[in-house]
């Protein structure tokens, strides 16, 4: 139980959004293999503070892989080497002693660095605010069982809805595309009968907003799926594109994303 390892960290340090960044090296010795990766960083920060040095800023909150706050790149892999895992759920038992780890923030124009490993992902919410919802007011809902949804459809909708908006898909994509995030949000609603009335208007607006926010296009390298801690499939991208093209070329509702639509 008392297994410990030593690791060398090379961490991107950037004191502010506009400041120049650089890498700095830190040695962490005697790290418990039972510690999570972020707990290891807590230990490093405690050490830095005790030495009067500035701790490393990184986003984190729930530390159980569901809030989507945490995330940075470890040796070129978003959220580290384990698939289906956020960096807060990554444990040190995964690494051999003597490992050299390079920690970098998500790199994307639409995710500007705030400090060190922390980036600003509010662009995701701009996408969601462009129609990523069902337009129902409270008080209008029919009885829950009045809308039948097959078990498979509900399950598939859930698969898409499981997206935590961490941004790993953008970080891992060579084009910094938000296609997986946006398509997952689109796909969740498109799978359900409740989502049909706004289906095409939604996809048209959200895709256009994604582009406006400065994310890249999809080159189908499928890095996003591999990096996604929730294992969201690239199939949602195909479905999203199909709906988008249908919205733009066939349906009335999706023709223009700036038709003064509100709510």
């Amino acid at each position: 139980m008392s297994d410990t390892i030593n690791v060398t960290l090379e961490v991107w340090r950037q004191p502010g959004a506009k400041a120049q960044g650089r890498f700095e090296r830190y040695e962490m010795n005697g790290v418990s293999t039972h510690a999570s990766f972020l707990e290891m960083l807590d230990g490093l920060n405690e050490k830095l503070i005790n030495e009067g040095k500035e701790p490393i800023a990184f986003e984190h909150d729930c530390r159980e892989g569901i809030c989507g706050s945490c995330g940075f790149v470890i040796n070129g892999q978003a959220h580290g080497p384990d698939r289906g895992t956020t960096v807060c759920q990554l444990h040190m038992r995964r690494f051999k002693s003597g490992t050299h780890l390079v920690l970098e923030p998500w790199r994307a124009k639409a995710f500007p660095v705030v400090r060190d490993l922390m980036v600003d992902r509010t662009s995701f919410d701009k996408i969601q605010a462009a129609g990523g919802y069902n337009g129902v007011n409270v008080g209008n809902a029919p009885d829950a069982n009045a809308i039948l949804v097959g078990k498979e459809a509900a399950g598939e909708a859930f698969d898409a809805a499981a997206c935590i908006g961490c941004g790993a898909c953008v970080a891992a994509c060579k084009n910094a595309s938000a296609m997986l995030f946006t398509s997952a949000k689109v796909g969740h609603f498109a799978m359900l009968p409740q989502g049909q009335p706004e289906r095409y208007r939604r996809v048209a607006r959200m895709f256009d907003e994604m582009e406006a926010q400065g994310f890249g296009a999809c080159s189908w390298t499928q890095e996003c799926e591999a990096a996604c801690p929730k294992g969201i499939s690239v199939k949602w991208i195909s479905r999203g594109k199909r709906d988008y093209l249908k919205a733009k070329l066939v349906k009335d509702s999706g023709q223009s994303s700036d038709d003064g639509f509100a709510g």
């Binding site: 129902v136 409270v138 829950a144 909708a157 809805a161 359900l192």
Partner: peptide, 14 residues
């Protein structure tokens, strides 16, 4: 009812 209308994918029977 409200959550279902919003599209919350609750567990379903076949």
């Amino acid at each position: 009812d409200q959550a279902v209308a919003q599209g919350v994918p609750f567990a379903r029977e076949y």
